[in-house]
Write a protein that binds this DNA or RNA. Sequence first.
DNA 1: TTGAAAGCGCTAACAG
DNA 2: CTGTTAGCGCTTTCAA
Lengths: 370, 370
Amino acid sequence: MNEYSLRYVSVYRKRLHILYVNLKGIMSQFAEFSRATIGDVAEKAGVSIATVSRVINKTGQVAEATAARVWGAVAELNYSPHAAARGLASRRTNNIGLVMREISGEFFSPMLRGIEAGTRENGYDLLIHCTYQSGDANQLGHYALGEHNADGMIVFVDSLDENELVRLYQMQFPIVLLHRTPPEGLDMPHVSFENKLGARKLVDYLIEVRGYKRIAFLPGPEGVEDSYWREMGYRDSLKAHGIAYDPALVVTGGFDEYQGQVAVAQLLSRNIPIDAIFAGDDDTAIGALIALKDAGLRVPEDIALVGFDDIRLSRYLTPPLTTVRAPIEQAGREAVKQLVSLIQSGRAEKLTLLPTELVIRRSCGAPEQA
Amino acid sequence: MNEYSLRYVSVYRKRLHILYVNLKGIMSQFAEFSRATIGDVAEKAGVSIATVSRVINKTGQVAEATAARVWGAVAELNYSPHAAARGLASRRTNNIGLVMREISGEFFSPMLRGIEAGTRENGYDLLIHCTYQSGDANQLGHYALGEHNADGMIVFVDSLDENELVRLYQMQFPIVLLHRTPPEGLDMPHVSFENKLGARKLVDYLIEVRGYKRIAFLPGPEGVEDSYWREMGYRDSLKAHGIAYDPALVVTGGFDEYQGQVAVAQLLSRNIPIDAIFAGDDDTAIGALIALKDAGLRVPEDIALVGFDDIRLSRYLTPPLTTVRAPIEQAGREAVKQLVSLIQSGRAEKLTLLPTELVIRRSCGAPEQA
DNA sequence: TTGAAAGCGCTAACAG
DNA sequence: CTGTTAGCGCTTTCAA
């Protein structure tokens, strides 16, 4: 390309650019066609974009009068900063990610409420992703939620593959685990309930106050920690009262209504004496209740029944379910709190265990409450 | 500043820059300190960043061998594109926003499940925001969710201020309303149930099959559309059967358990004959049930009770609640579908009404089901 | 089929 | 107190 053509191209480009700028000016008359940028605000306020940025973000000193003009321009133009541009420049997304396997069960609603409230209070937005089905990586080999679109993540139970957890940990991406302990060697903050203590108190009550000895247990799915610790509480209580642990009294309930029903049917078919059934969670307890009724057994007269979590439904069952109240919402909020601390200061509590509380209702044989 | 100092500054800057580049090189040995960028991938693959972009996004032709090398580099570097940068350049966020007033009630869980599934299936991420409390604009005068961080939004019921709705509409921001009709003059797509028809069928059944005539109605909160249409169905049915609408039989229930309880207490205090109570939703029905029991009345022997929605709890009540099943999850999924269509093609169904289904249980006086 | 380069809108030094 | 400017990491013409 010779000197001439270069010159030509340059002129041509410049013209096009002028055309473009004009067009943009015209279009911008129609607010709906082009969003105002920080530049527009700066122009209208007669300041530089840096000043606009300072005013908006409250970073650095700006004369009051100037600030006022900027706010005026912002209002007039209906300006709203472009999150992506902001994120690109400041290296933060302002999003907190939540990974969970699926949205289901009674547990979910209060948990999400806590998490949402927490993110909002801390000025973050909440990005949610379920790993059920699609879960895995996309063609690109990365997950829908990660370092590319969030400043940190809350990982619920086993929703995330351990390899991914390790990868994120290694790149020092802030993560808080909710209701799950970290994989071996990963020093990640972890928030949960006092599952073991709650179960312990529950079973203690069943034994000491209600006088039951043959207490069946319906654990949740393999590998779910809450269930593991509840079982530990159950065993501890038995041991403390000199009652032998009897494997025949334990059938996996699966933390779901149907599986609870199946488990109890199976349990009953063993024809062994049973005083009470401790279902690993309330959903399982509902299934258990159905199975017991199907078998013509009365609760609590023939067999007592207790659960764990105190979901909304529990008090409405017939009979109302004795259970352990788990501060689900609070745990969600706490997880966000720890995560925000981790993001902002690099520090967080290694382990947060929220207290649980015994809720006595009729299903365990207690007299009706007022 | 003279020639000399300018030169000096320039040299100084250059040195600093070299230092910086070196440092970056060193740091990048530790994968956790610096994420790979498209440039790193390009370098490793021996191509330009444009090519990497083409490969990753499958836009434009790239020689197979080249593509393979790029994918190799991607894998090796564990590269994952920076969402903000992408968004800035391509003018899309890949997020779909969901605005709701608060996370509560039984309605919420299935709805969110549907929405989440929908967004995921369409390759979007889900950003959730509750307008309860903080709801309003921040200091900047804009909402947490909007054109700056989402490609489109689903607005649930009345979670968003009408002015904001108008503003977004005017700037042609894609919005689908869930369970709410658009404000006057705004031509926004809208997804809901056949509330009116469902209520009509329910009340028809109460009158024709069960022979009730004095049927009370507990509407939801003022301005909630679902409730409005349910009331229309109720009135239509009465009229069709030649029964006069009696205002004394209508007390606002508020779509919540406690208010339902209060409403029924008030209703009973009027000392008028009542055959049945049609609660605007199942939550209200639960409150109604409590109030009836408190008053020593049997359901359905003394007064029949029906609700609307068929939340999970309804079948577990004593007696099990007759209600209308609303396809909550499906509505959420459908809303996303319409929104994605609106985003991608600018077109969407103006109105989508999903069918409802009568669910007969004991509370209306029907014999026990098998 | 590939590369060069111009931004996208904003933040954050730095200079004044 | 305010302005200038260099990127942030990526997409997207335009040329080659």
